[in-house]
Design a protein around this nucleic acid. Structure first.
Lengths: 226, 226
DNA sequence: GAACATACTGTATACTTAACCACTTATCGA
DNA sequence: TCGATAAGTGGTTAAGTATACAGTATGTTC
């Protein structure tokens, strides 16, 4: 596993736990900074990232107070919080498939900071096995039932065949399309008549294949259905 | 105390409790609005104020996610919420959700002989919780991304609201449609321009609601994706 | 029938917050 | 002495969020 927390990191963690118990919601960066005496919220931010790297918290990106303690049962988390020192920090807090939200330009898809949460489904549920779930943006694949907000199960591979649904990186943007190749000419088809196919000449443009779509999940975690 | 909550206020309160339990922090106005189907966050705001007036929550001003449930013991909050919701039918003891294939005419959906297999996903992954997965036949709902062979996660209930995707039994046939009711007249809409809506007069025809759709899974067990 | 509460839509604004960038200081092991 | 890590300061920006204001519609109460 990872290294134990430093003293300062432990202070930050304790404050999160205390805040959860006291107010029922996690603190903001600014609140952490104030409580710990930092003059900059950035100090809190970096501590949070360290805590996440070490697996003791989870950060929900772009969400105010988006800090989660590992315990599966949040109510248990509160109880634990009230009384105890975090004893088993080394406990793996995630099982299942990582859900990838926004992917920052230039960074690998599976970077820890892209992981929104985990879906408790074994990778082998899909064939070939899924390596992660990618949150779909836009409606370019709606004609084959892949809608905005859906989770696309993705099998990591660079070897794709014509007609497969692929996750590709084009100009640092991650996109889901149907793949077709003729020599050095690749066409990425949207499944939506309002979108035009994308033509790529591999001699002049770069195209990175991140994987193939192997499944779709919709409706988890309160997402609407319809 | 003050007057009891209205039905709508109860919905909002339940959603807050659910969010607290699921994520460990309270929802924002916008999240409430989205979950309850409001188009304006102000609707959520006014519900929150009503809930505060009636003493069931406390609002911390100018604070993101500043909603507190009064109960010191979080478990109590959950109990309250649970009891406010109609009793659930049966809790499956096996792990995973049963997958229902063909449903024989005249027999209950959840009869053992209909269960194809189990999908290793907790019922609570969906909201409200899924009771089973129904294998979809036909393309009548393709415009909202529900295709043939998909597994529709279904929450068992007879209480459905306009616009929801319902599993209904009509003339002993199980069908998935969008529900709309005006008095004793029910219309079941397909989401596919090639299908006509089905009109039912409850005075002369019987319509059994088996549940509402809460999610979709595609691609499990080798099923193709596109 | 006026007064009031509920239950919203729609728009706008200002505050809150997460997240980034550039930079500094100190410690520790190689 | 170099590089890596920890622990910050200070400031910026865009997104997230609470909240006010102006309406509409439908009931219930007196």
């Amino acid at each position: 596993m990872s290294r134990p927390l430093t003293a300062r990191q432990q202070h930050v963690f304790d404050f999160i736990v205390k805040t959860m118990g006291e107010f029922g919601y996690p603190p903001t960066r600014a609140e952490i900074a104030k409580a710990l005496g930092f003059r900059s919220p950035n100090a809190a931010e970096e501590h949070l990232r360290a805590l996440e790297r070490k697996g003791v918290i989870r950060i929900i990106r772009n969400t105010s107070r988006g800090i989660r303690l590992p315990n599966q049962e949040p109510q248990e988390a509160l109880d634990t919080a009230a009384s105890a020192v975090p004893a088993n920090l080394e406990t793996p807090l995630h099982t299942g498939l990582p859900v990838i939200g926004e992917v920052a330009a230039g960074s690998p898809i599976l970077a820890a900071e892209h992981i929104d949460r985990y879906c408790p489904l074994p990778a082998e549920y899909f064939t070939p096995k899924a390596d992660y779930l990618l949150r779909v943006r836009g409606l370019s694949m709606k004609d084959i039932g892949i809608l905005e907000g859906d989770l696309l199960a993705v099998h990591r591979t660079e070897r794709v065949r014509d007609g497969q649904i692929v996750v590709a990186r084009l100009d640092d943007e991650v996109t889901v399309k149907r793949f077709k190749r003729q020599g050095h000419q690749v066409t990425l088809y949207a499944e939506n008549s309002e979108f035009d196919p994308i033509e790529i000449d591999l001699r002049s443009q770069s195209l990175d294949i991140e994987g193939v779509g192997v499944g779709v999940i919709r409706g988890g975690n309160g997402q609407a259905l319809g």
